[in-house]
């Protein structure tokens, strides 16, 4: 991973957009609540609220990764003000439709909301994250960490470790 990509991590991930035990009733409720937060902190435009839900309906983002399912909601770069990746651990698993289907659902334990622009620089980072979803030990750490900062530290270590190998 180049220096530029290493700098990407602290720019995209932040404790202010990392949530443990996020309380929401379902995915719609989740999108409403997270949009309120993102708007208040200046990360998205108002158009994000509808765009993210619309996109999820048409092209769902739940991933049947083993053993823990995740979801990676994202939408048009035009609705993003400042690029970010929000990490959300819902209090109870949230049902998302599985990517590539419109029938099957997954029970997402972790959500990575990708507020990205069209840059190519984020691709290696996303690839490492995808590998991480299949890493049971790492996923268990992410599900158990008790503070936002510690969770981000664990993530950061993983990303840096992977990029060197």
């Amino acid at each position: 991973m180049s220096v530029r990509e290493k700098e990407l991590f602290p720019r995209l991930f932040t404790p202010e957009l990392t949530f443990l035990n996020f309380v929401c009733k379902n995915s719609t409720d989740f999108f409403e609540k997270i949009t309120d937060i993102l708007l208040e902190k200046g990360y998205v435009k108002e158009s994000f609220r509808q765009a993210i839900q619309e996109r999820e309906r048409c092209y769902p983002t739940g991933l049947r990764t083993a053993p823990y399912h995740v979801a990676i909601p994202h939408t048009d770069p035009e609705t993003i003000r400042k690029p970010f990746i929000a990490v959300i651990r819902p209090q109870t698993a949230l049902q998302f439709y599985e990517m590539g289907t419109n029938e099957e659902t997954v029970e997402a334990r972790l959500l990575f909301l990708l507020g990205l622009n069209r840059s190519e620089a984020q691709v290696p980072l996303l690839q490492i994250m995808m590998e991480m979803f299949a890493d049971q030990q790492m996923m268990e750490r992410l599900l158990q960490e008790t503070s936002e900062q510690r969770l981000l530290n664990v993530l950061h270590q993983y990303v840096v470790g992977r990029s060197l190998s």
Binding site: Y59, I72, T75, D76, P77, L116, R118, P124, Q127, M130
Partner: peptide, 16 residues
């Protein structure tokens, strides 16, 4: 191809 041409399709393309 993915819905927005960012994130997922880019990641899959680079993996492939």
């Amino acid at each position: 191809a993915c819905g927005s041409g960012v994130a997922t399709s880019q990641t899959v393309a680079s993996k492939v």
